[in-house]
Amino acid sequence: MIFFITCTASLKALRQNNDSKYKLNTFDLQLFNGEKTEEATPKRKEEAKKKGQVAKSTEISSVFVIMASFYSLKLLGVSIYDELSRYMIGIFSSIYTTDFTINSVQLLFLNVIIVLLKTILPILLVIMIISMAVNYMQVGFMFSTEILMPDFNKINPLSGFQRLFSKRSLVELFKALFKVSIIGYFIYRFAVIKTDDIPRFIKMELIDSLKLAGSLVIDLAFQIIAVMMVLAAFDYFYQWWQHNQSLKMSKQEVKEEFKQTEGNPQIKSKIKEKQRAIAMRRMMQEIPKADVVVTNPTHLAIALKYEKNMAAPVVLAKGQDLVAERIKQVARENRVAVVENKPLARALYPIVEIGDVVPPELYQAVAEVLAYVYRLKKRLS
């Protein structure tokens, strides 16, 4: 029986001990939880921008570049065709009369480059301007060299394998498949609708067939661009959301950043406490120079001094409650008159600071108190 009771007590103690350990471990897990639930601070966002980490959608840039390209072709197509046709006519008309020497071949390549620049350069300039404008609208002006620094993690096979099967890669794969499906559907739909126009190419002249083919391609391109615009808008909001999620901080990180930027709150409070103590000592050192201390009598105390060369009496010290009691004590120790005047004390305290002069509306009341103090001093002397 005794053995049974002993075993039962031991098991109960062991269970309680395990329960206490479990609770302690649970507390530690909550205490050191690094879950990032806080929104990114302005400093965190600025640091990310310096590193080139911004909310940016490549889909928006791509769709605007494609739109600018096809729109430029639509506007400049006729002039590009005329320029190329004149050059080709000139080349083929003189091919039998031209001696192919080194100089003539060099001149031929030079003319090819000039023609290409005249036809392609305007489109390239439009694409470049549109691309820069779209990027500026998304992220503003940004110049970062950190993104150009070599990162060996990018060539690490293990890191590359992890990125390959990461959530971001799966989302990009889904986006790519969705785009291909949408574009394929519109191409199929367009081909079915325009099936009747295909036999017309057989009976048309080359120039007319090229114009018709160009117009069909551009119409199809603008239909696809319209769909891609909608997809790009969704992608931009997704990139913005994912960027904000990646910049989120834990509560501990917010505290550490606050300490770095604003300083440790405990140190700041100690500094302020020392500053208040120094200011208090200086104020108490000025009280013996005062002519009178006006009191409430228990809650407020204001020490005043007046000399003939002063425009008005000056406040040397002020305080309430415990500070007021200390001011009165120092005044009595240094034989400074302490006068009870509730209306004057209540009127002075909120409107004057240490070193200020008494406001004109209180000259009369302060003068009466000073006159009383001077008469009192004469009697005592």
Rank of each mutant, 00 (worst) to 15 (best):
T295C: 01
D28W: 11
L300K: 05
G140T: 07
L170P: 09
W241F: 11
F190M: 11
M67T: 15
M142F: 04
P297Q: 09
A317D: 04
F3R: 12
V352Q: 01
K289P: 02
Q162H: 12
V65L: 08
L304F: 08
I2A: 13
K56A: 12
V126Q: 11
A301W: 00
N264I: 02
L73A: 04
T6F: 13
V105K: 06
Y185T: 02
K194V: 09
K118L: 05
G90P: 11
S20E: 11
E368L: 12
L84D: 05
L322K: 14
F64M: 01
E307S: 09
I155Y: 11
F186L: 13
A324C: 03
P150Q: 03
Q223Y: 10
V65F: 14
L231G: 04
E340P: 07
L108V: 00
V227K: 00
G355N: 01
K342H: 10
I129T: 14
V134I: 12
K251P: 09
K342S: 09
M280L: 15
P350E: 02
P343V: 06
F100S: 10
L24M: 14
E262H: 05
P360D: 14
E257G: 01
Y87Q: 08
Y136P: 13
K251G: 01
K318S: 04
I351C: 01
W241C: 02
A176E: 05
F190N: 13
V292A: 03
I95E: 02
I287Y: 03
V180D: 05
Q364K: 10
A191Q: 12
I225Q: 07
T295D: 01
P297G: 00
E361Y: 11
A345H: 04
K272T: 07
L362H: 15
A317G: 13
E46S: 06
K289R: 11
P343A: 10
I114M: 03
L117M: 10
S94V: 13
Q223M: 14
V115L: 08
L376G: 11
V112W: 05
Y185V: 14
L116N: 07
Y96G: 02
L370E: 09
V63D: 03
Q329F: 12
A290R: 04
N309M: 09
A290E: 00
K175L: 01
F32P: 05
E146A: 14
Q106G: 08
F201M: 00
K12E: 00
K268F: 01
Q53S: 10
L362F: 09
A191W: 15
D219S: 13
Y96L: 08
A40P: 02
S10I: 06
L73Q: 11
A226N: 06
S94G: 08
Q275C: 06
K268S: 14
E46F: 03
A176K: 15
N244V: 06
E273H: 13
Y372F: 01
A301E: 04
Q30F: 09
I351S: 03
I155T: 06
N296W: 07
P359C: 04
I114Q: 13
P150T: 04
C7Q: 10
K377N: 12
S85K: 11
M1V: 05
G77V: 15
Q260G: 00
I224M: 00
S85I: 04
M204F: 02
R168M: 04
T101R: 07
E361R: 14
P360R: 06
G77S: 11
V180F: 15
P350H: 02
A221N: 12
V171L: 02
T37S: 08
R15N: 06
M249W: 07
K268Y: 03
L316C: 01
F92R: 11
L173R: 03
